[in-house]
């Protein structure tokens, strides 16, 4: 059902994408368009392939031996699995936040400055600016501005995760992938992360994997439900949570399985 050329491309667009580990497909034949400057949530029972799918957007799956894809992933229309694509450059533009906060065992400052530094920025003043703006944007500046030299590991779990978000922002990506960013945090810290996500979507396209349906309902504009590696339903979050069109989606949302 072709509707002719669209006025705008989706930010991320997959077409019949399968991700395989050896012969086993973790993601099967998924076509999905993710709009820019929105929060899109991936939900589904564990092992449904939502994380694997997410990791195909910045090619983190490449690091797993034997993993490969079929189909395509396009970001702003650029096929990111094309031969001529530089994975390192891709990852600078598609940032990722992991399930477990993973700050480097360095100072807060050095954590944020890591990305700019590997990009060759040496100038101290410039780095200072980047660090401050990244920390401000991730709403943690006021909490840490006086101890930038302190070890990042001394921060609380929630602060560490916001630090990791700041670290990703410091490279100035246009897409942020979040793989269950709040699953290890208490409700207060989770709330702060969710608030942050809401504020960030003005500037970034955010894709978040979560097993927490309330979270998906709270933060996302769109929700995709995955089951056994397949995309079951993709729609506005409001619709998914009020009037899902698939029985499986409804059963998962109402907690009958998962």
């Amino acid at each position: 059902m072709t509707t002719g050329p669209l006025p705008l491309q989706p930010k991320i667009s997959t077409s019949t994408l399968s991700v395989l580990y050896g012969a086993k497909a973790a993601v099967k034949n998924v076509s999905l368009d993710i709009p820019a400057n929105k929060v899109t949530a991936f939900i589904g029972p564990s092992g449904c392939g939502k994380s694997t799918f997410l990791r195909s957007f910045n090619r983190m799956n490449d690091l797993i031996e034997g993993a490969h894809i079929e189909g395509s992933v396009r970001i702003d229309g650029v096929d990111i699995y094309d031969r001529g694509i530089d994975v390192v450059e891709l990852r600078k533009r598609v940032g990722m936040i992991f399930q477990r906060s993973n700050p480097f065992p360095k100072s807060i400052y050095d954590n944020i400055a890591y990305g700019p530094r590997v990009n060759g920025i040496r100038d101290r003043k410039r780095l200072d600016e980047i660090v401050e703006s990244a920390l401000r944007r991730s709403a943690i500046w006021d909490e840490v501005k006086d101890d930038l030299g302190k070890s990042a590991l001394a921060l609380s779990g929630g602060q560490q995760q916001r630090l990791c978000i700041a670290r990703a922002l410091a490279v100035d990506p246009s897409v942020l992938l979040m793989d269950e960013p709040a699953s290890a945090l208490d409700p207060t810290a989770t709330g702060k992360i969710e608030e942050l996500i809401y504020e960030l979507k003005d500037r970034y396209t955010i894709v978040i994997v979560t097993h927490n349906m309330q979270q998906a309902a709270r933060v996302s504009d769109l929700t995709a439900f995955f089951y056994l590696g397949e995309l079951v339903e993709f729609d506005e979050t409001r619709k998914i949570f009020t009037a899902p069109s698939h029985r499986q989606t409804e059963e998962y949302i109402t907690g009958r399985f998962g």
């Binding site: 989706p10 368009d33 995309l231 993709f234 619709k239």
Partner: peptide, 22 residues
């Protein structure tokens, strides 16, 4: 250019997406 409408997304919703994006 291929369609932005995915397998399991209903056309009306896709239309909405486009407008919002614009």
């Amino acid at each position: 250019m291929r369609s932005a409408i995915s397998r399991s997304v209903d056309p009306a919703f896709a239309q909405h997406l486009n407008t919002v994006s614009t």
